[in-house]
Simulated scan of single mutants.
Amino acid sequence: MTGFSHEDAYARNGNTIKVIAIYNKPDDFSAGYIARLFDGIEPTAKAVTGKTLESIREKIPKGYTRIPRDERDVGSLVESWIY
């Protein structure tokens, strides 16, 4: 996977925000990092993968803002990006 399409990254349904959550080896993906796209709080089927955090961050579309992980988040969550 090379990245999110322009439509995936920026098209909105109503007033929802776009969120990309980056995980490191979650239960369902043990091969490395995965960034999953959410439309508001609803997960989508869109995701990108990478061996390193840096390789995933390079795939985050321009205009997104990084939100650090909160201690209450699931342990595999590294950070989130919102648009």
Rank of each mutant, 00 (worst) to 15 (best):
T2E: 13
G3Q: 00
G3M: 01
F4T: 10
F4W: 01
S5Q: 07
H6P: 03
H6D: 15
E7A: 13
E7D: 12
Y10V: 12
A11E: 11
R12C: 10
N13H: 11
G14I: 05
G14T: 09
N15Y: 07
N15C: 10
T16A: 09
I17M: 14
V19Q: 11
I20S: 10
I22G: 03
I22T: 00
N24I: 05
K25H: 07
K25T: 08
K25L: 04
P26A: 05
P26Q: 01
F29L: 07
S30V: 05
S30G: 05
Y33Q: 04
Y33K: 04
I34C: 03
A35F: 02
R36T: 05
L37P: 00
F38N: 08
G40V: 02
G40T: 04
E42L: 08
E42P: 02
T44V: 02
V48T: 04
G50E: 05
L53S: 00
L53C: 04
S55W: 05
I56N: 00
E58T: 05
K59F: 04
K62G: 11
G63Q: 01
G63R: 06
Y64S: 11
R66C: 08
R66H: 13
I67L: 10
P68A: 14
E71L: 13
E71T: 15
V74S: 11
G75L: 08
G75C: 06
S76P: 02
S76E: 09
V78C: 06
E79R: 01
E79N: 05
Y83G: 12
